[in-house]
């Protein structure tokens, strides 16, 4: 019997998420619909000058997909680390009241380790833009 109840619960949960799924689909369809509508209604009279890529009136002289600053990668990597920490904090934050002092102290330790890493990044200049 417990198994039935568990299945029921999962069923209930999925039912709660059904509107979310439909809403995402509606969002995608709505966006696509707008773009398609624009393409149908608008004229299409392309010429070479119009289609040339925008560069403030200059003739474009180099490939657009050039290399870019490595710091953007660095930011992305740091972001992944910190975002993971936030994902770890979420469940802890919701049950902190039940965990009490023990929960608080263990998370303080966890945050302390995070902060050590953060200070290291700071001192290494990873957060520096000039």
């Amino acid at each position: 019997m417990p198994q039935y109840r568990r299945a029921d619960r999962i069923h209930q949960m999925l039912e709660n998420y059904l509107p979310v799924l439909i809403f995402i689909a509606v969002g995608l369809v709505f966006g696509a619909f707008m773009v398609v509508l624009g393409m149908i209604l608008s004229p299409s009279r392309p010429d070479d000058e119009k289609l040339s890529r925008y560069e403030c009136g200059f003739e474009a002289f180099a490939g657009a997909r050039s290399e870019f600053d490595v710091r953007f990668y660095l930011v992305a990597i740091l972001f992944i680390i910190f975002d993971l920490e936030i994902a770890f904090l979420f469940p802890w934050a919701t049950v902190l009241r039940e965990l009490g002092l023990f929960g608080l102290l263990s998370m303080t330790l966890f945050l302390a380790i995070l902060v050590v890493g953060f200070i290291y990044e700071w001192k290494k200049g990873a957060l520096q833009w000039e």
């Binding site: 979310v20 809403f23 995402i24 969002g27 995608l28 709505f30 966006g31 696509a32």
Partner: peptide
């Protein structure tokens, strides 16, 4: 053409909850 759709869908779908 897909990029605008991809930025529109989450902006709307977030309102579900």
């Amino acid at each position: 053409l897909f990029a605008p759709v991809l930025s529109m869908a989450p902006a709307l779908a977030a309102w579900a909850v």
